[in-house]
């Protein structure tokens, strides 16, 4: 199992946001769909240990998260946050930042291409991009870590329909080409069905559907929503 959550409770701003969530997320692509404020971002931040649950257990590939080296975990399980937050500097600086921390070089052009950006963007200033472009740089920056799992927090919520479709295509493509597992959070149930092999619904901090269903391989298979 990629991730297992057992009786997880988590708080945000002093109030409990996730109430007793138990979930099993297998390899592949899973969407966590729920309305705004239902606790999706809170849940996602638990998976790479940006936040700690109040109680309960979170495991990654059978191992308790707390027992793993946290920085290595975050490189292996890369999170793309809900709102773009780029570092000052060029786009190449941003893409190279994570690998630079472990003295690894990156092919910026390849990563920009993977994220659906023109390679000419590399030398552009990070603060001179549209929101959609920033989202893609955030994606390229996460991919630069060569992760095995990508956690995406509403990657298209700030985008218009056409850009959204592009990003969705990019994500499917990534899944096909790199075999990366995806955990994608969205408030858009239609998007969840388009993108995911499995959909988990989150409502008021409780997981409504946690049945992983039979293992599926094709992205186009209808998700197991009940």
């Amino acid at each position: 199992m990629l991730f297992e959550l057992e009786r997880v409770r988590a708080s945000r701003g002093g109030a409990e946001v996730l109430h007793d969530v138990s979930l099993a997320l297998p390899e592949g692509s899973t969407c966590i769909a729920g309305s705004s404020g239902s606790g999706k971002s809170t849940l996602l931040r638990l998976l790479n240990r940006l936040a700690e649950p109040d109680s309960g257990r979170v495991a990654y590939r059978g191992r308790e998260l707390a027992s793993l080296e946290v920085l290595a975990l975050r490189r292996e399980v890369a999170l793309v946050p809900q709102l773009p937050a780029l570092l000052p500097g060029t786009i190449a600086d941003n893409v190279g930042f994570g690998p630079g921390l472990v003295d690894r070089d990156v092919e910026v052009a390849v990563l920009l291409d993977l994220a659906g950006l023109p390679t000419a963007f590399a030398e552009r200033d990070a603060d001179r991009l549209s929101t959609g472009e920033q989202q893609r740089v955030m994606l390229a920056r996460a991919l630069a870590l060569e992760p095995r799992v990508l956690l995406l927090d509403e990657p298209t919520s700030a985008l218009d329909e056409r850009t959204r479709d592009h990003v969705e295509e990019t994500l499917k493509e990534l899944r096909r080409r790199l075999g990366i597992s995806l955990v994608l959070v969205t408030h858009d149930f239609a998007q969840a069905e388009r993108l995911a092999e499995r959909v988990v619904r989150l409502e008021g901090g409780r997981a409504i559907v946690a049945d992983p269903g039979p293992e599926r391989t094709s992205v186009s298979t209808p998700p197991a929503v009940r």
């Binding site: 920085l71 975050r74 490189r75 999170l79 946050p81 709102l83 937050a85 570092l87």
Partner: peptide, 20 residues
């Protein structure tokens, strides 16, 4: 805090994330 968390998410240490 968004920038700091985004930097932590890239595998940066607390010290690296707060440096700027």
């Amino acid at each position: 805090w968004r920038e700091i968390e985004a930097t932590l998410a890239l595998g940066a240490t607390a010290g690296q994330a707060i440096r700027p």
